[in-house]
Nucleic acid binder design. Structure first.
Length: 857
RNA sequence: GGGCGCAUAGCUCAGUUGGUUAGAGCACCUGCCUUACAAGCAGGGAGUCGCAGGUUCGAGUCCUGCUGUGCCCACCA
């Protein structure tokens, strides 16, 4: 142990350089287990992070580097403050992107009805046209196999970037623990009545043939057309409506207008008949109807859009669905269409896609003279599944829901209150949370009609006629989780009772990916597998994440924790911004402007890239700026050179406390920096902490080092010499630690030149450890004089080494006294033979500088 | 349509609760081989703080309106 530790005390190089520091130190950190979580600590001594699990099937981009660096700076700071940092890493391999990738890569598809095949090996050459059906468990294996490669790439990047994750703490969102956790949490929700099934109109993606939750919607502007269509009153008069969806006339259940709309007062309470189909529908009033839109009166169909659902529910209207789960018009002619003409018209639509049905319906309306004028093209927002390509339809299906306040004012208020209790960085992000929670219009739909994912751990009894009894699901023992109801029988049943009357059937659905990722604190923290760990890390300290998933990941996590533990999942949420390209657009792969992160790290060095990332304030979108990385690189090199100089000058000797006013002044300034940087980091303002340290460091190099370099080497003045040496060593030690969270490689390398152990396990500096006393204005006043002398030389276009016979400095007596206290240093640094101090009431200034210019040569 | 940001030097950004003459870095210009660092050092020029009002002794900062820009949300007739 001592042997290996000693091996990492490195000697100071003659020409220090940044090259190779990443590989060198990441290997040492791994070997020394520098970032290993110490689980012997109690909760109060632990800082725990709910790390975002990156989607492994996605690609690495600069945004990852940016936001993970922010979290790492916080993690390193907390570690140096003495906390045991729980900093796990997850991999998101659940959900549609992975499902599609595994299908294409291996040429297979998941068929949950198949039994597990332990002997299965994927085909050598995937046949993309005929995907081989395999069981869910086999599919999960392939997923884990494929994503392992991606995980390696991510891990290599994180290590190279210096992310101080504990690599023994990893999870995958589809792994055993994640499935166990998701199923167990669901069963708790079910037992408490928070999870329930309902048959209801549901937003439905016809391509994936799955339900979609409110949080996964997005609006897209799409072309459409207003069709002016007439309905018929019994007296033969026509009522004109405008619709963008004439193909749904057969699903019409009512016309609706605003209750105050004078034009339609006479119609309310009466009935009209639909064009073409001749179905009698009521005319109703509802305040949601907009008199300004179209003709002010609209047809209500089951279901054309979510407003239809509202009207249907609130006005208690009939249900006349004509769209199937495949997005086509239902083949058999519905019973509410009774006329011969109507039934034959419907037959022309039956089985057609929405697109084709609309064309045929327009033709039918023309023939019956119920289409007035030409369709008027418009552009309007249409709801899409965010990963889908066709507009969503609304169909009635049986689904699992989880209460999230969308239909319950009391729960909604409790969740809004949770948002208030959470410390947001930056604070204004809370508003997005509140807007979202306030705008919820239903509970969280958590079931998906997909094949790959975490299955619902329930079965249904089949009655004597083989129909499932949904009202009373069979549930497994918690000890048997995770289970797959498609291959495991419920307790008390045997597999041969599957699908037979009097037997059972497994729930065919899987959970929404957010139903799993909303449990990342529980998955990472061992809620279901390691109660000892869980009580040490939960509730967690920090959730770092991006702002666009506040409505999904953040909110869903709050919901789960609120329902399960009646508390917040973490105390703080740090919301990172986006990376913008130079055109101020969000960087994205499709635009082809993404730089691969590893190439950046190689080009500039990890510390330099981290410097750029840390310059992006919490929650603020930041421009991708290689110039900023060059500045970071320069800073890292400066740290190498200045440290080397300090150590050469100050030597190995550990002297007494500093005594010279100038030295004490510098340390007084540094004490202020330590206090301010600590306060900034406590408030998650890592950018401010870096900025303060950097500013101090440059003036430390340019002024203080220049002033004391001669005294520090002057053996004729042992007191002054040792004062400077002591101050230099104290300052270097503190500065390296202040920089360590941001520039872990260069600081660790310098630390190894003269100290034992890792700087990253050293304690964060405190003002108390620096020599007390000292006035900051000694150094600043001396700096004014030094700057004046430099300016005179610069304006005379002579070198800084040019000697000066006398410089005259004027200012108030107190300032002159401070300058005088460092007269020797000033004369040495400015090459002054004499410094003349003149009393003046004006601000301190250099009045004259008499240069000794050698014109002879 | 509602909400939240942003707008300060050519570029990227700081400017804490209102307070002398608005700052930094990059870029640019002028110099300097100076023994830690030329991937360095010294110095310099450069801004009507988006526009218009208002509050105040005093506004980059507070209030109102507007413009531009970005994001989030929203009920598809």
């Amino acid at each position: 142990m001592t042997q290996t530790a000693a091996a990492h005390v490195h000697t100071m190089p003659d020409r220090p350089a940044l090259e190779g520091l990443e590989d060198k130190w990441s290997a040492v950190w791994e070997e020394q287990q520098t970032y290993r979580f110490d689980r012997s600590k109690a909760r109060s001594q632990i800082y725990s992070i709910d790390t975002p699990p990156p989607t492994v099937s996605g690609s690495l981009h600069v945004g990852h580097v940016f936001s993970y660096t922010h979290t790492d700076c916080i993690a390193r700071y907390q570690r140096m403050k003495g906390k045991a940092v729980f900093y796990p890493m997850g991999w998101d391999d659940n959900g549609l992107p992975t499902e599609r990738r595994v299908q294409n890569y291996f040429g297979v598809r998941c068929d949950p009805s198949l039994p597990y095949d332990a002997e299965f090996v994927p085909p050598d050459k995937p046949d993309k046209k005929r995907q081989l059906p395999i069981s869910r468990r086999n599919f999960v294996h392939l997923c884990e196999q494929l994503t392992a490669e991606d995980e390696k790439e991510f891990e290599a990047l994180w290590r190279h970037l210096g992310i101080s994750v504990d690599w023994t703490q990893t999870y995958q969102t589809i792994d055993h623990n994640a499935r166990l956790t998701s199923q167990r949490a669901f069963l708790h929700n079910l037992a408490r009545g928070e999870a329930y099934q309902a048959e209801a109109p549901t937003l439905w993606d016809v391509t994936y043939r799955t339900a979609v939750a409110q949080a996964e919607l997005e609006d897209r502007e799409r072309p459409g057309s207003y069709h002016r269509v007439s309905f018929h009153r019994h007296d033969g008069d026509k009522v004109f409506i405008e619709t963008t969806r004439p193909e749904l006339v057969a699903a019409c259940v009512a016309l609706v207008a605003h209750p105050d709309d004078d034009r339609y007062q006479a119609l309310f309470g009466s009935t009209v008949t639909t064009p073409v189909f001749g179905v009698e529908v009521p005319v109703v009033a509802h305040p949601l109807a907009d008199p300004e839109k179209g003709s002010g009166i609209a047809m209500i169909c089951t279901f054309g859009d979510v407003t239809d659902v509202t009207w249907w529910r609130e006005l208690d209207l009939a249900t006349r669905p004509i769209l199937g789960w495949d997005g086509r018009i239902i083949p058999h002619t519905p019973e509410w269409i009774t006329s011969d003409e109507g039934r034959s018209a419907y037959e022309q639509l039956a089985g057609a896609t929405v697109f084709t049905a609309q064309q045929r319906m327009v033709e039918l309306l023309r023939q019956s003279a119920d289409l007035h004028g030409d369709p008027r093209p418009i552009t309007h927002p249409v709801k899409f599944f965010e990963k889908g390509e066709k507009p969503l339809e609304i169909v009635t299906t049986r689904q699992w829901y989880l209460r999230n306040g969308g239909r319950d004012e009391e729960l909604r208020q409790q969740l809004i209150d949770r948002g208030t209790q959470l410390h947001w960085h930056p604070q204004n992000m809370r508003v997005r949370y509140e807007n979202w929670v306030s705008g919820l219009n239903g509970d969280w739909l958590i079931s998906r009609q997909r094949f790959f994912g975490v299955p619902f751990p329930v079965w249904y009894r089949l009655d004597d006629s083989g129909e499932p009894v949904y009202a009373d699901p069979l549930v497994p023992d918690e000890a048997s989780l995770p289970i797959d109801p498609q291959s495991d029988p419920p307790p008390g049943y045997t597999e041969d009772q599957r699908g037979v009357p009097g037997g059972f059937m497994g729930d065919p659905d899987v959970m929404d990916t957010w139903a799993t990722s909303s449990l990342t604190p529980q998955i990472a923290g061992g809620w279901a597998t390691d109660p000892d760990l869980w009580q040490r890390v939960a509730p967690m300290d920090l959730r770092p994440q991006a702002h666009e998933i506040i409505r999904t990941w953040l909110f869903a996590t709050v919901v789960r924790s609120h329902l399960e533990d009646d508390r917040l999942p973490w105390s703080d949420a740090a919301i990172s911004g986006w990376i913008l390209d130079p055109d101020r657009k969000k960087m994205s792969k499709s635009k082809g402007n993404v730089v691969t992160p590893m190439a950046l790290l190689d080009k500039h060095g990890s510390d330099a890239v981290r410097y750029w990332a840390a310059s992006g304030r919490p929650g603020t979108d930041t421009a991708f700026d290689e110039g900023q990385m060059k500045i970071g690189r320069r800073l890292a090199i400066k740290i190498l050179n200045a440290s080397r100089f300090v150590l050469l000058t100050a030597g190995e000797h550990v002297p007494e406390q500093p005594s010279e006013p100038l030295d004490l002044s510098m340390l007084a300034g540094l004490r202020q920096v330590v206090a301010a940087a600590t306060e900034a980091l406590d408030g998650y303002n890592y950018t401010r902490a870096l900025e303060l340290t950097e500013t101090f460091f440059w003036s430390f190099c340019d002024d203080y080092l220049e002033l004391v370099k001669q005294r520090a080497a002057d053996d004729d003045d042992p007191v002054g010499r040792d004062s400077a040496r002591s101050a230099l060593r104290q300052a270097l030690s503190v500065l390296l630690r202040l920089f360590a969270p941001f520039l872990p490689f260069v600081t660790e390398d310098v630390w190894s030149w003269w100290r034992q152990g890792s700087v990253h396990q050293h304690r964060w500096p405190t003002p108390d450890e620096l020599a007390p006393g000292g006035q900051t204005d000694v150094l600043s006043d001396v700096g004014v004089v030094l700057s004046g002398i430099r300016k005179a030389k610069s304006e005379a276009k002579v070198g800084m080494r040019t000697p000066v016979s006398v410089a005259e400095v004027a200012g108030p007596a107190a300032a002159l006294e401070r300058v005088g206290s460092a007269q020797r240093d000033l004369c040495a640094a400015g090459r002054l033979a004499d410094l003349r101090l003149v009393d003046s009431s004006a601000a301190l200034e250099v009045r004259s500088v008499d240069l000794i210019v050698d014109n002879s040569g």
